[in-house]
C-alpha cells in the first residue's frame, strides 16, 4: 500500500484531464461493438489514477481514446473530453498531434513491439526530441543519452547505437519510458507497462515510472489488471467491467472496503503471501460478449450476491460516503450483508 499522501494543493487543483460520459463503439462486420459506455474520470496534476479491469473491459480503449489514437472504425462520443482546459474533441488534428509526445505521452504494454525495429534507439529518441523542440541533432543526441541514463540503462552512450532487437525487454521498456517522458509531459498514460516483463524487472520499472513522474510533476493514468500494481502505484482507482465503470474510490478506501462485488472478486483473485494457505477466490465465469450484454447489471451472472433486481434493473454509478462511487444496487455491501443475514 502506498503510504505517501499527496499534498493538499494537488487535491484541490483543477483537473488536468476530465473525461465525461465517454462512450466508444467499434463498427465491425458483425455489428456495432460497444467497448466503453459512459465513462467519467478526472485526473489532477501529479496524481496517479489506476484503471483496473479484466481483458476486454475497455481499459486500453480508454487510453487510446484520450491519446487520440483510436482507429477510424471507432466512434467516440463524450459530453466532455477536456485536457488542461482545452476541448480535445474540438481540436484540429494538427493541434492534437502537437500535444502528443509533448503534453501527453504513452507507454505501451509490449516493449518488444513498441519500438520501430529498423531504427536505432538513439535515432528514435532524437526524432522524438526534435519533433517538438528545434535543437540541432548533436544536442538532441546528448539529450537522448541523458534521458536513457535517467532510466538506469547502463552505458547509454553505447545503447543509442543499438537496434531494439539488441536490447532486453526491460531495457526496451526503459527506452520507451525515456522516449515518453523526454518532453516532461503533464499526462503519462501507462498501458500495462509491466505485464510483458519478468517479475524481477517489473518492480524496477514501476519504481522508475513513479519516480520520474513525481520528479516531473506528471499525472499518470495507469492501466492494469494487476491489483498488486494498483496498490503499489495508485492514488485513486477506477474499476471497469465490460466497458462500464463499476466503482471508483481512493486506493486506500478501495482496498479497505470494496463496494462492488466485482472489485471484491478482483481483490480475492490476488495471491496473499502473508496468509499461508488462504485460498484465492477467482471470479466465476468470464467477461460477457460485448455484443450480447446480459440485461440489468452486466456483472450479475457472475455475482454471488445477485438477485432478481440485478437481472432486470441496470444500476447507476451512485455516490457513497467518503467521495467514492459504486454501481451496485446493494452498496454499501457491508450493510446489505448484515441485513440479509
Amino acid at each position: 500500500m502506498k503510504h505517501m499522501t499527496l499534498p493538499d494543493s494537488v487535491m484541490t487543483a483543477p483537473p488536468l484531464l476530465t473525461v465525461e460520459n465517454l462512450s466508444v463503439t467499434f463498427r465491425t462486420d458483425s455489428g456495432p461493438l460497444p467497448a466503453l459506455d459512459g465513462i467519467s474520470l478526472s485526473i489532477r496534476p501529479g496524481e496517479t489514477v489506476a484503471v483496473v479491469g479484466e481483458s476486454g473491459s475497455g481499459k486500453s480503449v480508454l487510453s487510446l481514446a484520450v491519446m487520440g489514437l483510436l482507429p477510424p472504425t471507432a466512434e467516440l462520443t463524450a459530453s466532455g473530453l477536456i485536457f488542461d482546459g482545452e476541448d480535445l474533441q474540438a481540436m484540429s488534428k494538427r493541434t492534437r498531434r502537437d500535444l502528443r509526445g509533448r503534453d501527453m505521452a504513452m507507454i505501451f504494454q509490449e516493449p518488444s513491439t513498441a519500438l520501430n525495429p529498423v531504427q536505432r534507439i538513439g535515432d528514435q529518441l532524437i526524432e522524438a526530441i526534435r519533433l517538438h523542440e528545434d535543437i540541432p541533432t548533436p544536442k538532441a543526441r546528448a539529450r537522448a543519452i541523458e534521458a536513457l541514463a535517467a532510466t538506469g540503462i547502463p552505458s547509454p552512450e553505447l545503447r543509442v547505437r543499438a537496434y531494439p532487437h539488441e536490447l532486453s525487454g526491460g531495457m526496451r521498456q526503459r527506452a520507451l519510458i525515456a522516449m515518453a517522458l523526454i518532453h516532461r509531459p503533464r499526462l503519462l498514460i501507462a498501458d500495462e507497462p509491466t505485464t510483458a516483463l519478468d517479475v524481477t524487472v517489473q518492480a524496477q520499472i514501476l519504481d522508475l515510472i513513479r519516480d520520474l513522474a513525481r520528479d516531473n510533476g506528471t499525472a499518470t493514468l495507469f492501466i492494469t489488471h494487476d491489483m498488486g500494481v494498483v496498490a503499489e502505484m495508485a492514488d485513486r482507482v477506477a474499476v471497469l467491467y465490460a466497458g462500464r465503470m463499476v466503482e471508483t474510490a481512493s486506493a486506500s478506501d478501495l482496498f479497505e472496503s470494496p463496494e462492488h462485488p466485482y472489485t471484491l472478486g478482483l481483490l480475492g483473485s490476488m495471491p496473499q503471501l502473508n496468509q499461508r494457505g488462504a485460498a484465492m477466490l477467482p471470479i466465476a465465469g468470464t467477461v460477457p460478449d460485448l455484443r450480447q450484454m446480459p440485461p440489468g447489471c452486466h456483472f450479475h451472472p457472475r455475482c454471488p450476491f445477485a438477485d432478481h433486481r440485478c437481472a432486470t434493473q441496470r444500476p447507476d454509478l451512485r455516490p457513497l460516503a467518503g467521495n467514492r462511487r459504486s454501481a451496485c444496487h446493494y452498496a454499501p455491501l457491508l450493510e446489505t450483508l448484515e441485513t440479509r443475514a
Binding site: 487510446l64 491519446m67 489514437l69 498531434r97 502537437d98 500535444l99 502528443r100 509526445g101 509533448r102 505521452a105 504513452m106 505501451f108 513491439t113 513498441a114 519500438l115 520501430n116 525495429p117 526524432e127 522524438a128 519533433l131 517538438h132 520507451l176 522516449m179 515518453a180
Partner: peptide, 9 residues
C-alpha cells in the same frame, strides 16, 4: 510501434 510512433506525435 505504429501506435507508439503516433503517440510521440
Amino acid at each position: 510501434y505504429m501506435d507508439s510512433g503516433r503517440s510521440i506525435g
